[in-house]
Nucleic acid binder design. Structure first.
Lengths: 295, 295
DNA sequence: TTTCTGTTATGCATATTTGCATGGATAACG
DNA sequence: CGTTATCCATGCAAATATGCATAACAGAAA
Protein backbone atom coordinates (compact mmCIF):
# COMPACT_ATOMS: atom_id res chain seq x y z
CA UNK A 1 0.00 0.00 0.00
CA UNK A 2 0.97 3.56 -0.34
CA UNK A 3 1.57 5.03 3.04
CA UNK A 4 3.51 8.21 3.51
CA UNK A 5 6.78 6.50 4.40
CA UNK A 6 9.16 6.09 1.51
CA UNK A 7 10.47 2.64 0.75
CA UNK A 8 13.60 1.07 2.14
CA UNK A 9 16.55 1.58 -0.20
CA UNK A 10 17.95 -1.80 0.75
CA UNK A 11 14.88 -3.33 -0.80
CA UNK A 12 15.53 -1.45 -4.01
CA UNK A 13 19.00 -2.94 -4.14
CA UNK A 14 17.52 -6.37 -3.55
CA UNK A 15 15.17 -5.83 -6.48
CA UNK A 16 17.95 -4.64 -8.74
CA UNK A 17 20.23 -7.52 -7.83
CA UNK A 18 17.43 -9.99 -8.40
CA UNK A 19 16.72 -8.67 -11.86
CA UNK A 20 20.37 -8.56 -12.83
CA UNK A 21 21.19 -11.97 -11.41
CA UNK A 22 18.04 -13.54 -12.79
CA UNK A 23 16.90 -15.21 -9.60
CA UNK A 24 16.68 -14.60 -5.89
CA UNK A 25 19.16 -17.37 -5.17
CA UNK A 26 21.84 -15.99 -7.41
CA UNK A 27 21.21 -12.44 -6.32
CA UNK A 28 21.70 -13.59 -2.75
CA UNK A 29 25.13 -14.92 -3.67
CA UNK A 30 26.06 -11.66 -5.33
CA UNK A 31 25.00 -9.59 -2.34
CA UNK A 32 26.38 -11.99 0.23
CA UNK A 33 22.95 -12.64 1.68
CA UNK A 34 20.62 -15.61 1.58
CA UNK A 35 17.75 -16.37 -0.69
CA UNK A 36 15.05 -16.09 2.01
CA UNK A 37 16.31 -12.63 2.89
CA UNK A 38 16.13 -11.49 -0.71
CA UNK A 39 12.73 -13.06 -1.04
CA UNK A 40 11.45 -11.07 1.90
CA UNK A 41 13.13 -7.84 0.82
CA UNK A 42 11.59 -8.01 -2.63
CA UNK A 43 8.22 -8.87 -1.14
CA UNK A 44 8.67 -5.95 1.22
CA UNK A 45 9.35 -3.58 -1.65
CA UNK A 46 6.26 -4.77 -3.46
CA UNK A 47 4.23 -4.15 -0.33
CA UNK A 48 5.77 -0.75 0.26
CA UNK A 49 5.18 0.42 -3.31
CA UNK A 50 1.81 -1.27 -3.66
CA UNK A 51 2.74 -2.94 -6.92
CA UNK A 52 3.61 -6.43 -8.13
CA UNK A 53 7.15 -6.56 -9.48
CA UNK A 54 7.52 -10.24 -10.28
CA UNK A 55 5.18 -12.87 -11.55
CA UNK A 56 5.86 -16.06 -9.60
CA UNK A 57 5.54 -18.46 -12.47
CA UNK A 58 6.76 -21.96 -11.93
CA UNK A 59 10.27 -22.15 -10.66
CA UNK A 60 11.38 -18.68 -11.48
CA UNK A 61 10.40 -15.04 -11.39
CA UNK A 62 9.55 -12.96 -14.42
CA UNK A 63 9.28 -9.20 -14.33
CA UNK A 64 5.82 -7.77 -14.63
CA UNK A 65 5.12 -4.80 -16.86
CA UNK A 66 5.18 -2.65 -13.74
CA UNK A 67 8.49 -4.10 -12.68
CA UNK A 68 9.97 -3.28 -16.04
CA UNK A 69 8.75 0.30 -15.81
CA UNK A 70 10.37 0.77 -12.43
CA UNK A 71 13.55 -0.98 -13.45
CA UNK A 72 15.00 1.98 -15.31
CA UNK A 73 14.88 4.14 -12.25
CA UNK A 74 16.24 1.38 -10.05
CA UNK A 75 19.13 1.00 -12.45
CA UNK A 76 19.75 4.73 -12.17
CA UNK A 77 19.87 4.29 -8.45
CA UNK A 78 22.35 1.47 -8.78
CA UNK A 79 24.51 3.44 -11.18
CA UNK A 80 24.59 6.35 -8.74
CA UNK A 81 25.53 3.93 -5.97
CA UNK A 82 28.41 2.68 -8.07
CA UNK A 83 29.58 6.22 -8.63
CA UNK A 84 29.52 6.79 -4.91
CA UNK A 85 31.73 3.78 -4.31
CA UNK A 86 34.01 4.87 -7.11
CA UNK A 87 34.39 8.42 -5.89
CA UNK A 88 34.85 7.22 -2.33
CA UNK A 89 37.62 4.93 -3.43
CA UNK A 90 39.28 7.89 -5.05
CA UNK A 91 38.86 10.05 -1.99
CA UNK A 92 40.22 7.49 0.39
CA UNK A 93 43.59 8.68 1.57
CA UNK A 94 44.21 5.62 3.71
CA UNK A 95 47.15 3.46 2.81
CA UNK A 96 45.43 0.34 4.01
CA UNK A 97 42.78 -1.30 1.91
CA UNK A 98 42.31 -3.36 -1.17
CA UNK A 99 43.39 -2.61 -4.69
CA UNK A 100 42.12 -4.78 -7.50
CA UNK A 101 44.26 -5.08 -10.60
CA UNK A 102 43.03 -6.72 -13.75
CA UNK A 103 45.29 -8.10 -16.44
CA UNK A 104 45.33 -10.83 -19.02
CA UNK A 105 46.02 -14.25 -17.60
CA UNK A 106 49.51 -14.42 -19.02
CA UNK A 107 50.26 -10.93 -17.83
CA UNK A 108 48.95 -11.78 -14.38
CA UNK A 109 51.06 -14.92 -14.11
CA UNK A 110 54.27 -13.83 -15.78
CA UNK A 111 54.47 -10.15 -14.94
CA UNK A 112 52.07 -9.01 -12.29
CA UNK A 113 52.47 -11.72 -9.70
CA UNK A 114 56.29 -11.59 -9.76
CA UNK A 115 56.03 -7.89 -8.94
CA UNK A 116 53.84 -8.34 -5.89
CA UNK A 117 56.60 -9.04 -3.35
CA UNK A 118 58.27 -5.73 -4.17
CA UNK A 119 54.93 -3.94 -3.89
CA UNK A 120 54.32 -5.60 -0.56
CA UNK A 121 57.67 -4.23 0.53
CA UNK A 122 56.76 -0.68 -0.41
CA UNK A 123 53.21 -0.63 0.90
CA UNK A 124 52.60 -3.40 3.42
CA UNK A 125 49.09 -2.20 4.27
CA UNK A 126 47.72 -2.67 0.78
CA UNK A 127 45.92 -5.88 -0.08
CA UNK A 128 46.18 -6.70 -3.76
CA UNK A 129 43.54 -8.65 -5.61
CA UNK A 130 44.60 -9.89 -9.02
CA UNK A 131 41.80 -10.32 -11.54
CA UNK A 132 43.15 -12.54 -14.30
CA UNK A 133 40.67 -12.25 -17.14
CA UNK A 134 41.20 -11.79 -20.83
CA UNK A 135 38.03 -9.86 -21.30
CA UNK A 136 38.47 -6.21 -20.53
CA UNK A 137 37.31 -5.47 -17.03
CA UNK A 138 34.80 -2.73 -16.48
CA UNK A 139 36.65 -0.10 -14.52
CA UNK A 140 33.56 2.11 -14.45
CA UNK A 141 31.64 -0.45 -12.48
CA UNK A 142 34.70 -1.04 -10.39
CA UNK A 143 35.21 -4.67 -11.24
CA UNK A 144 38.83 -3.58 -10.92
CA UNK A 145 40.58 -0.43 -9.80
CA UNK A 146 43.52 -0.63 -12.17
CA UNK A 147 43.90 -2.48 -15.45
CA UNK A 148 46.85 -3.43 -17.59
CA UNK A 149 45.76 -3.28 -21.19
CA UNK A 150 47.19 -3.17 -24.67
CA UNK A 151 45.01 -0.36 -25.91
CA UNK A 152 44.59 3.27 -25.02
CA UNK A 153 41.26 3.59 -23.24
CA UNK A 154 38.59 5.38 -25.23
CA UNK A 155 36.26 6.26 -22.36
CA UNK A 156 36.88 9.83 -21.23
CA UNK A 157 36.48 8.81 -17.58
CA UNK A 158 39.45 6.51 -17.81
CA UNK A 159 42.98 7.75 -17.61
CA UNK A 160 45.70 5.70 -19.22
CA UNK A 161 49.44 6.05 -19.37
CA UNK A 162 51.54 4.10 -21.81
CA UNK A 163 54.32 2.46 -19.84
CA UNK A 164 56.19 0.79 -22.64
CA UNK A 165 55.93 -1.13 -25.87
CA UNK A 166 56.66 -4.80 -26.16
CA UNK A 167 57.24 -6.71 -29.32
CA UNK A 168 55.36 -9.90 -30.04
CA UNK A 169 57.48 -12.34 -32.05
CA UNK A 170 57.32 -15.90 -33.24
CA UNK A 171 58.28 -18.76 -30.95
CA UNK A 172 58.17 -22.53 -31.12
CA UNK A 173 59.41 -25.48 -29.12
CA UNK A 174 62.59 -27.16 -30.20
CA UNK A 175 60.66 -30.39 -30.63
CA UNK A 176 58.43 -28.75 -33.20
CA UNK A 177 61.29 -27.13 -35.09
CA UNK A 178 63.22 -30.41 -35.20
CA UNK A 179 60.22 -32.18 -36.64
CA UNK A 180 58.91 -29.59 -39.11
CA UNK A 181 62.07 -27.69 -39.89
CA UNK A 182 63.19 -24.24 -38.87
CA UNK A 183 61.78 -21.59 -41.25
CA UNK A 184 64.43 -19.29 -42.61
CA UNK A 185 62.20 -16.90 -44.56
CA UNK A 186 58.84 -15.38 -43.95
CA UNK A 187 57.45 -17.16 -46.99
CA UNK A 188 58.10 -20.56 -45.46
CA UNK A 189 55.60 -19.83 -42.71
CA UNK A 190 52.85 -20.76 -45.13
CA UNK A 191 53.83 -24.39 -44.58
CA UNK A 192 53.77 -24.21 -40.80
CA UNK A 193 51.22 -24.65 -38.04
CA UNK A 194 50.31 -21.40 -36.36
CA UNK A 195 48.85 -21.40 -32.88
CA UNK A 196 45.93 -19.06 -32.71
CA UNK A 197 45.04 -16.70 -29.92
CA UNK A 198 41.37 -15.90 -29.97
CA UNK A 199 39.79 -14.07 -31.62
CA UNK A 200 41.57 -15.86 -34.47
CA UNK A 201 40.35 -13.55 -37.20
CA UNK A 202 41.87 -10.53 -35.56
CA UNK A 203 45.16 -12.35 -35.01
CA UNK A 204 45.31 -13.41 -38.64
CA UNK A 205 44.49 -9.93 -39.85
CA UNK A 206 47.32 -8.54 -37.75
CA UNK A 207 49.81 -11.12 -39.01
CA UNK A 208 48.81 -10.63 -42.65
CA UNK A 209 49.15 -6.89 -42.19
CA UNK A 210 52.68 -7.54 -40.97
CA UNK A 211 53.43 -9.46 -44.14
CA UNK A 212 53.16 -13.04 -42.91
CA UNK A 213 51.63 -15.47 -45.45
CA UNK A 214 49.23 -17.20 -43.07
CA UNK A 215 45.58 -18.07 -43.47
CA UNK A 216 42.98 -19.76 -41.40
CA UNK A 217 44.21 -23.10 -42.76
CA UNK A 218 47.48 -22.66 -40.88
CA UNK A 219 45.66 -22.55 -37.59
CA UNK A 220 44.94 -26.00 -36.18
CA UNK A 221 44.85 -25.15 -32.52
CA UNK A 222 43.49 -22.09 -30.91
CA UNK A 223 42.64 -20.80 -27.47
CA UNK A 224 41.49 -17.71 -25.69
CA UNK A 225 43.89 -18.34 -22.85
CA UNK A 226 47.48 -17.15 -22.95
CA UNK A 227 48.69 -19.83 -20.56
CA UNK A 228 47.12 -22.54 -22.68
CA UNK A 229 48.81 -21.01 -25.70
CA UNK A 230 52.13 -21.25 -23.91
CA UNK A 231 51.46 -24.87 -23.09
CA UNK A 232 50.58 -25.53 -26.74
CA UNK A 233 53.87 -24.03 -27.79
CA UNK A 234 55.75 -26.12 -25.28
CA UNK A 235 53.99 -29.24 -26.52
CA UNK A 236 55.31 -28.52 -29.99
CA UNK A 237 51.91 -27.99 -31.56
CA UNK A 238 53.07 -25.10 -33.68
CA UNK A 239 54.52 -21.64 -33.91
CA UNK A 240 52.97 -19.08 -31.61
CA UNK A 241 52.96 -15.33 -31.41
CA UNK A 242 53.95 -14.04 -27.99
CA UNK A 243 55.43 -10.91 -26.50
CA UNK A 244 59.13 -11.29 -25.75
CA UNK A 245 58.83 -10.93 -21.97
CA UNK A 246 56.38 -13.79 -21.85
CA UNK A 247 58.31 -16.07 -24.18
CA UNK A 248 61.52 -15.57 -22.28
CA UNK A 249 59.88 -16.94 -19.17
CA UNK A 250 58.67 -20.09 -20.91
CA UNK A 251 61.40 -22.74 -21.02
CA UNK A 252 62.17 -24.64 -24.18
CA UNK A 253 61.06 -22.06 -26.71
CA UNK A 254 63.20 -20.87 -29.60
CA UNK A 255 62.78 -17.57 -31.38
CA UNK A 256 61.70 -18.17 -34.97
CA UNK A 257 62.76 -15.80 -37.77
CA UNK A 258 64.91 -13.50 -35.60
CA UNK A 259 65.07 -11.02 -38.47
CA UNK A 260 61.28 -10.47 -38.51
CA UNK A 261 60.71 -7.29 -36.52
CA UNK A 262 57.63 -8.50 -34.72
CA UNK A 263 54.43 -6.75 -33.81
CA UNK A 264 54.51 -3.79 -31.44
CA UNK A 265 52.34 -4.31 -28.39
CA UNK A 266 51.74 -1.12 -26.46
CA UNK A 267 51.40 -1.44 -22.73
CA UNK A 268 48.84 0.75 -20.99
CA UNK A 269 48.13 1.26 -17.35
CA UNK A 270 44.52 2.34 -16.97
CA UNK A 271 42.50 3.60 -14.04
CA UNK A 272 39.31 5.50 -13.51
CA UNK A 273 39.77 9.24 -13.23
CA UNK A 274 38.15 9.27 -9.81
CA UNK A 275 40.36 6.68 -8.20
CA UNK A 276 43.53 8.34 -9.46
CA UNK A 277 43.25 10.80 -6.61
CA UNK A 278 43.47 8.06 -4.01
CA UNK A 279 46.81 7.81 -2.32
CA UNK A 280 46.60 4.04 -2.22
CA UNK A 281 45.82 3.77 -5.93
CA UNK A 282 48.53 6.24 -6.85
CA UNK A 283 51.16 4.20 -5.08
CA UNK A 284 50.17 1.07 -6.92
CA UNK A 285 49.90 2.80 -10.28
CA UNK A 286 53.26 4.49 -9.89
CA UNK A 287 54.88 1.29 -8.80
CA UNK A 288 53.46 -0.66 -11.72
CA UNK A 289 54.37 2.04 -14.19
CA UNK A 290 57.96 2.04 -13.12
CA UNK A 291 58.21 -1.73 -12.89
CA UNK A 292 56.57 -2.36 -16.26
CA UNK A 293 58.77 0.20 -17.96
CA UNK A 294 61.82 -1.65 -16.69
CA UNK A 295 60.86 -5.06 -18.04
CA UNK B 1 38.18 0.41 4.78
CA UNK B 2 37.72 -0.78 1.28
CA UNK B 3 36.65 -4.36 1.33
CA UNK B 4 34.97 -6.01 -1.61
CA UNK B 5 31.45 -5.60 -0.21
CA UNK B 6 29.58 -2.57 -1.48
CA UNK B 7 28.04 -0.24 1.05
CA UNK B 8 24.57 -0.41 2.51
CA UNK B 9 22.12 1.73 0.56
CA UNK B 10 20.23 2.56 3.71
CA UNK B 11 23.35 4.30 4.95
CA UNK B 12 23.46 6.36 1.78
CA UNK B 13 19.93 7.51 2.43
CA UNK B 14 20.90 8.39 5.98
CA UNK B 15 23.75 10.49 4.66
CA UNK B 16 21.53 12.26 2.16
CA UNK B 17 18.84 12.98 4.70
CA UNK B 18 21.42 14.31 7.13
CA UNK B 19 22.84 16.70 4.59
CA UNK B 20 19.44 17.91 3.46
CA UNK B 21 18.05 18.27 6.96
CA UNK B 22 21.20 19.88 8.27
CA UNK B 23 21.59 17.70 11.33
CA UNK B 24 21.24 14.12 12.45
CA UNK B 25 18.40 14.99 14.77
CA UNK B 26 16.29 16.62 12.12
CA UNK B 27 17.11 13.99 9.56
CA UNK B 28 15.90 11.41 12.04
CA UNK B 29 12.55 13.18 12.22
CA UNK B 30 12.27 13.27 8.46
CA UNK B 31 13.02 9.58 8.10
CA UNK B 32 10.99 8.54 11.08
CA UNK B 33 14.03 7.18 12.88
CA UNK B 34 16.00 8.39 15.87
CA UNK B 35 19.14 10.44 16.06
CA UNK B 36 21.34 7.63 17.43
CA UNK B 37 20.31 5.42 14.53
CA UNK B 38 21.22 8.06 11.99
CA UNK B 39 24.46 8.71 13.82
CA UNK B 40 25.43 5.07 13.53
CA UNK B 41 24.30 4.73 9.93
CA UNK B 42 26.37 7.69 8.83
CA UNK B 43 29.33 6.41 10.82
CA UNK B 44 28.80 3.03 9.19
CA UNK B 45 28.87 4.58 5.73
CA UNK B 46 32.07 6.39 6.54
CA UNK B 47 33.60 3.14 7.68
CA UNK B 48 32.35 1.24 4.65
CA UNK B 49 33.66 3.80 2.19
CA UNK B 50 36.84 4.52 4.10
CA UNK B 51 36.29 8.26 4.02
CA UNK B 52 35.28 10.98 6.44
CA UNK B 53 32.03 12.62 5.39
CA UNK B 54 31.42 15.03 8.23
CA UNK B 55 33.66 17.07 10.42
CA UNK B 56 32.29 16.87 13.98
CA UNK B 57 32.88 20.46 14.90
CA UNK B 58 31.23 21.68 18.04
CA UNK B 59 27.59 20.87 18.23
CA UNK B 60 26.98 20.32 14.57
CA UNK B 61 28.27 18.50 11.51
CA UNK B 62 29.85 20.14 8.52
CA UNK B 63 30.50 18.34 5.28
CA UNK B 64 34.09 17.58 4.48
CA UNK B 65 35.47 18.16 1.00
CA UNK B 66 35.11 14.45 0.43
CA UNK B 67 31.53 14.50 1.59
CA UNK B 68 30.75 17.28 -0.83
CA UNK B 69 32.28 15.32 -3.68
CA UNK B 70 30.16 12.30 -2.92
CA UNK B 71 27.03 14.32 -2.36
CA UNK B 72 26.25 14.79 -6.05
CA UNK B 73 26.08 11.07 -6.62
CA UNK B 74 24.07 10.52 -3.45
CA UNK B 75 21.60 13.13 -4.65
CA UNK B 76 21.35 11.26 -7.93
CA UNK B 77 20.55 8.15 -5.95
CA UNK B 78 17.89 10.01 -4.03
CA UNK B 79 16.38 11.46 -7.18
CA UNK B 80 16.19 7.99 -8.71
CA UNK B 81 14.54 6.73 -5.54
CA UNK B 82 11.95 9.46 -5.83
CA UNK B 83 11.28 8.50 -9.41
CA UNK B 84 10.76 4.92 -8.29
CA UNK B 85 8.19 5.99 -5.73
CA UNK B 86 6.53 8.23 -8.28
CA UNK B 87 6.34 5.60 -10.98
CA UNK B 88 5.14 3.02 -8.50
CA UNK B 89 2.38 5.32 -7.37
CA UNK B 90 1.33 5.63 -10.98
CA UNK B 91 1.43 1.90 -11.55
CA UNK B 92 -0.59 1.05 -8.54
CA UNK B 93 -4.00 -0.08 -9.70
CA UNK B 94 -5.25 -0.64 -6.17
CA UNK B 95 -8.22 1.40 -5.06
CA UNK B 96 -7.02 1.42 -1.47
CA UNK B 97 -4.25 3.69 -0.42
CA UNK B 98 -3.46 7.28 0.30
CA UNK B 99 -3.84 10.26 -1.98
CA UNK B 100 -2.31 13.55 -0.93
CA UNK B 101 -3.93 16.71 -2.21
CA UNK B 102 -2.32 20.10 -1.75
CA UNK B 103 -4.23 23.35 -1.92
CA UNK B 104 -4.10 26.81 -0.45
CA UNK B 105 -5.34 27.03 3.11
CA UNK B 106 -8.56 28.77 2.16
CA UNK B 107 -9.16 26.36 -0.68
CA UNK B 108 -8.54 23.44 1.66
CA UNK B 109 -10.95 24.72 4.28
CA UNK B 110 -13.71 26.14 2.13
CA UNK B 111 -13.70 23.90 -0.92
CA UNK B 112 -11.67 20.76 -0.53
CA UNK B 113 -12.76 19.60 2.88
CA UNK B 114 -16.49 20.03 2.14
CA UNK B 115 -16.02 17.73 -0.85
CA UNK B 116 -14.42 14.92 1.11
CA UNK B 117 -17.65 13.24 2.30
CA UNK B 118 -18.80 12.79 -1.30
CA UNK B 119 -15.41 11.41 -2.26
CA UNK B 120 -15.54 9.03 0.68
CA UNK B 121 -18.88 7.85 -0.67
CA UNK B 122 -17.50 7.13 -4.13
CA UNK B 123 -14.22 5.52 -3.07
CA UNK B 124 -14.31 4.34 0.53
CA UNK B 125 -10.90 2.68 0.34
CA UNK B 126 -9.01 5.86 -0.42
CA UNK B 127 -7.41 7.77 2.42
CA UNK B 128 -7.10 11.44 1.64
CA UNK B 129 -4.40 13.61 3.11
CA UNK B 130 -4.97 17.32 2.71
CA UNK B 131 -1.85 19.46 2.54
CA UNK B 132 -2.90 23.00 3.27
CA UNK B 133 0.03 25.16 2.30
CA UNK B 134 0.18 28.37 0.36
CA UNK B 135 3.56 27.64 -1.09
CA UNK B 136 3.33 25.50 -4.18
CA UNK B 137 3.96 21.86 -3.31
CA UNK B 138 6.59 19.97 -5.20
CA UNK B 139 4.68 17.34 -7.10
CA UNK B 140 7.89 16.03 -8.61
CA UNK B 141 9.21 15.10 -5.22
CA UNK B 142 5.79 13.81 -4.33
CA UNK B 143 5.10 16.09 -1.46
CA UNK B 144 1.62 15.76 -2.85
CA UNK B 145 -0.02 13.63 -5.53
CA UNK B 146 -2.51 16.20 -6.74
CA UNK B 147 -2.49 19.97 -6.41
CA UNK B 148 -5.13 22.64 -6.85
CA UNK B 149 -3.42 25.72 -8.24
CA UNK B 150 -4.22 28.99 -9.91
CA UNK B 151 -1.60 28.68 -12.61
CA UNK B 152 -1.01 26.36 -15.50
CA UNK B 153 1.99 24.19 -14.58
CA UNK B 154 5.09 24.95 -16.58
CA UNK B 155 6.99 21.74 -15.89
CA UNK B 156 6.51 19.32 -18.78
CA UNK B 157 6.20 16.39 -16.37
CA UNK B 158 3.11 17.88 -14.81
CA UNK B 159 -0.27 17.58 -16.40
CA UNK B 160 -2.85 20.19 -15.59
CA UNK B 161 -6.48 20.66 -16.55
CA UNK B 162 -8.30 23.88 -16.07
CA UNK B 163 -11.52 23.13 -14.23
CA UNK B 164 -13.00 26.58 -14.11
CA UNK B 165 -12.40 30.28 -13.58
CA UNK B 166 -13.38 32.11 -10.46
CA UNK B 167 -13.64 35.84 -10.05
CA UNK B 168 -11.98 37.57 -7.15
CA UNK B 169 -13.93 40.65 -6.04
CA UNK B 170 -13.90 43.18 -3.23
CA UNK B 171 -15.52 42.40 0.10
CA UNK B 172 -15.75 44.09 3.45
CA UNK B 173 -17.59 43.65 6.72
CA UNK B 174 -20.70 45.73 7.33
CA UNK B 175 -19.01 47.20 10.41
CA UNK B 176 -16.23 48.58 8.26
CA UNK B 177 -18.55 49.98 5.62
CA UNK B 178 -20.74 51.64 8.22
CA UNK B 179 -17.70 53.31 9.76
CA UNK B 180 -15.75 54.31 6.65
CA UNK B 181 -18.49 54.66 4.12
CA UNK B 182 -19.47 52.46 1.22
CA UNK B 183 -17.43 53.35 -1.91
CA UNK B 184 -19.56 53.93 -4.96
CA UNK B 185 -16.82 54.44 -7.53
CA UNK B 186 -13.48 52.85 -8.15
CA UNK B 187 -11.76 56.16 -7.50
CA UNK B 188 -13.00 56.25 -3.91
CA UNK B 189 -10.97 53.17 -3.11
CA UNK B 190 -7.93 55.40 -2.78
CA UNK B 191 -9.34 56.52 0.60
CA UNK B 192 -9.90 53.00 1.91
CA UNK B 193 -7.93 50.41 3.81
CA UNK B 194 -7.04 47.44 1.65
CA UNK B 195 -6.20 44.10 3.26
CA UNK B 196 -3.13 42.65 1.66
CA UNK B 197 -2.53 39.05 0.74
CA UNK B 198 1.18 38.31 0.56
CA UNK B 199 3.17 38.88 -1.49
CA UNK B 200 1.74 42.38 -1.26
CA UNK B 201 3.64 43.75 -4.24
CA UNK B 202 2.15 41.19 -6.56
CA UNK B 203 -1.33 41.84 -5.24
CA UNK B 204 -0.97 45.59 -5.72
CA UNK B 205 0.39 45.16 -9.21
CA UNK B 206 -2.62 43.04 -10.11
CA UNK B 207 -5.07 45.53 -8.64
CA UNK B 208 -3.43 48.49 -10.35
CA UNK B 209 -3.47 46.60 -13.63
CA UNK B 210 -7.22 46.17 -13.13
CA UNK B 211 -7.60 49.92 -12.75
CA UNK B 212 -7.87 50.25 -8.97
CA UNK B 213 -6.18 53.36 -7.50
CA UNK B 214 -4.40 51.63 -4.63
CA UNK B 215 -0.84 51.93 -3.41
CA UNK B 216 1.20 50.43 -0.63
CA UNK B 217 -0.10 53.18 1.67
CA UNK B 218 -3.58 51.71 1.48
CA UNK B 219 -2.37 48.47 2.97
CA UNK B 220 -2.23 48.52 6.75
CA UNK B 221 -2.69 44.85 7.42
CA UNK B 222 -1.34 41.97 5.50
CA UNK B 223 -0.98 38.21 5.81
CA UNK B 224 0.14 35.20 3.85
CA UNK B 225 -2.75 33.18 5.13
CA UNK B 226 -6.13 33.22 3.45
CA UNK B 227 -8.00 32.31 6.62
CA UNK B 228 -6.37 35.12 8.51
CA UNK B 229 -7.37 37.46 5.68
CA UNK B 230 -10.96 36.32 6.08
CA UNK B 231 -10.80 36.98 9.79
CA UNK B 232 -9.36 40.45 9.10
CA UNK B 233 -12.28 41.18 6.80
CA UNK B 234 -14.75 40.00 9.41
CA UNK B 235 -13.10 42.17 12.04
CA UNK B 236 -13.71 45.17 9.82
CA UNK B 237 -10.08 45.98 9.27
CA UNK B 238 -10.56 46.85 5.63
CA UNK B 239 -11.60 45.81 2.17
CA UNK B 240 -10.23 42.50 0.98
CA UNK B 241 -9.92 40.77 -2.36
CA UNK B 242 -11.33 37.27 -2.34
CA UNK B 243 -12.75 34.81 -4.84
CA UNK B 244 -16.53 34.69 -4.81
CA UNK B 245 -16.89 31.12 -3.61
CA UNK B 246 -14.77 31.90 -0.57
CA UNK B 247 -16.45 35.15 0.29
CA UNK B 248 -19.90 33.62 0.06
CA UNK B 249 -18.95 31.17 2.79
CA UNK B 250 -17.79 33.92 5.13
CA UNK B 251 -20.68 35.41 7.09
CA UNK B 252 -21.09 39.14 7.46
CA UNK B 253 -19.31 40.24 4.30
CA UNK B 254 -20.77 42.62 1.76
CA UNK B 255 -19.75 42.84 -1.85
CA UNK B 256 -18.11 46.20 -2.56
CA UNK B 257 -18.42 47.89 -5.97
CA UNK B 258 -20.69 45.25 -7.56
CA UNK B 259 -20.07 46.81 -10.96
CA UNK B 260 -16.34 46.20 -10.85
CA UNK B 261 -15.86 43.02 -12.88
CA UNK B 262 -13.23 41.49 -10.60
CA UNK B 263 -10.08 39.56 -11.33
CA UNK B 264 -10.30 36.24 -13.09
CA UNK B 265 -8.72 33.42 -11.10
CA UNK B 266 -8.19 30.31 -13.16
CA UNK B 267 -8.52 27.01 -11.37
CA UNK B 268 -6.12 24.24 -12.30
CA UNK B 269 -5.98 20.65 -11.22
CA UNK B 270 -2.40 19.43 -11.49
CA UNK B 271 -0.78 16.01 -11.15
CA UNK B 272 2.44 14.39 -12.19
CA UNK B 273 2.30 12.63 -15.52
CA UNK B 274 3.36 9.33 -13.92
CA UNK B 275 0.68 9.19 -11.28
CA UNK B 276 -2.08 9.97 -13.77
CA UNK B 277 -2.03 6.32 -14.80
CA UNK B 278 -2.95 5.19 -11.33
CA UNK B 279 -6.55 4.14 -10.95
CA UNK B 280 -6.73 5.63 -7.49
CA UNK B 281 -5.35 9.00 -8.62
CA UNK B 282 -7.64 9.10 -11.64
CA UNK B 283 -10.71 8.64 -9.51
CA UNK B 284 -9.75 11.51 -7.25
CA UNK B 285 -8.75 13.80 -10.11
CA UNK B 286 -11.94 13.11 -12.02
CA UNK B 287 -14.03 13.65 -8.92
CA UNK B 288 -12.33 16.92 -8.10
CA UNK B 289 -12.53 18.15 -11.68
CA UNK B 290 -16.26 17.61 -11.81
CA UNK B 291 -16.89 19.00 -8.35
CA UNK B 292 -14.78 22.10 -8.83
CA UNK B 293 -16.41 22.86 -12.17
CA UNK B 294 -19.80 22.80 -10.47
CA UNK B 295 -18.96 25.32 -7.77
C1' DT C 1 8.18 -42.67 -14.53
C1' DT C 2 11.71 -41.51 -11.38
C1' DT C 3 15.49 -38.83 -10.16
C1' DC C 4 18.00 -34.79 -9.88
C1' DT C 5 18.73 -29.98 -9.96
C1' DG C 6 17.38 -25.45 -9.21
C1' DT C 7 13.84 -22.47 -7.81
C1' DT C 8 10.77 -19.76 -4.11
C1' DA C 9 8.23 -19.56 0.46
C1' DT C 10 7.87 -20.27 5.55
C1' DG C 11 8.92 -21.69 10.71
C1' DC C 12 12.11 -20.87 14.22
C1' DA C 13 16.48 -19.78 16.76
C1' DT C 14 19.87 -16.30 16.53
C1' DA C 15 22.22 -11.76 15.34
C1' DT C 16 21.81 -7.48 14.36
C1' DT C 17 19.82 -3.17 14.44
C1' DT C 18 17.02 0.08 16.65
C1' DG C 19 15.13 3.12 20.25
C1' DC C 20 15.37 4.97 24.88
C1' DA C 21 17.89 7.11 28.38
C1' DT C 22 21.84 9.43 29.41
C1' DG C 23 26.20 12.04 29.28
C1' DG C 24 29.06 15.61 27.43
C1' DA C 25 29.81 19.61 24.87
C1' DT C 26 28.83 23.97 22.34
C1' DA C 27 26.56 28.11 20.88
C1' DA C 28 23.02 31.55 21.87
C1' DC C 29 20.85 34.47 25.20
C1' DG C 30 19.48 36.99 29.15
C1' DC D 1 28.65 34.63 33.60
C1' DG D 2 25.25 31.46 34.31
C1' DT D 3 21.20 29.43 31.88
C1' DT D 4 19.01 27.23 28.28
C1' DA D 5 18.47 24.88 24.16
C1' DT D 6 20.39 21.99 20.81
C1' DC D 7 23.41 18.91 19.13
C1' DC D 8 26.17 14.29 18.85
C1' DA D 9 27.96 9.85 20.99
C1' DT D 10 27.32 5.61 23.80
C1' DG D 11 25.33 1.85 27.09
C1' DC D 12 21.63 -1.28 27.40
C1' DA D 13 17.05 -3.58 26.65
C1' DA D 14 13.70 -4.52 23.08
C1' DA D 15 12.27 -4.94 18.36
C1' DT D 16 13.58 -6.33 13.95
C1' DA D 17 15.80 -8.64 10.34
C1' DT D 18 18.71 -12.48 9.15
C1' DG D 19 20.21 -17.26 8.36
C1' DC D 20 19.35 -22.17 8.68
C1' DA D 21 16.51 -25.94 7.82
C1' DT D 22 12.80 -27.47 5.36
C1' DA D 23 8.80 -27.85 2.39
C1' DA D 24 6.73 -27.40 -2.02
C1' DC D 25 7.19 -27.08 -6.78
C1' DA D 26 8.78 -27.13 -11.80
C1' DG D 27 11.57 -28.63 -15.45
C1' DA D 28 15.32 -31.54 -17.41
C1' DA D 29 17.45 -35.85 -17.71
C1' DA D 30 17.85 -40.75 -17.01
Amino acid sequence: MDNGTPFDWTQARAFLATVEAGSLSQAAKVLGLTQPTLSRQVAGLEAALGVVLFERVGRSLVLTETGRDLLDHVRDMGAAAERIALAAAGQSQALEGRVTISASDAMAVHVLTPLLPALQEIAPGIEVEVLAANRISDLQRREADIAIRHLRPVEPELIGRQVGTWRARLYAARSYLDRRGRPETVAELAQHAILGFAPVDRLLATLVAEGLPVTRRNVRHMTDNGLVLAEMMQQGLGIGVAPEPFAQRIPGLDLVLPDWPGIPVPLWLVAHREVQTSRRMRIVVDFLAEALARI
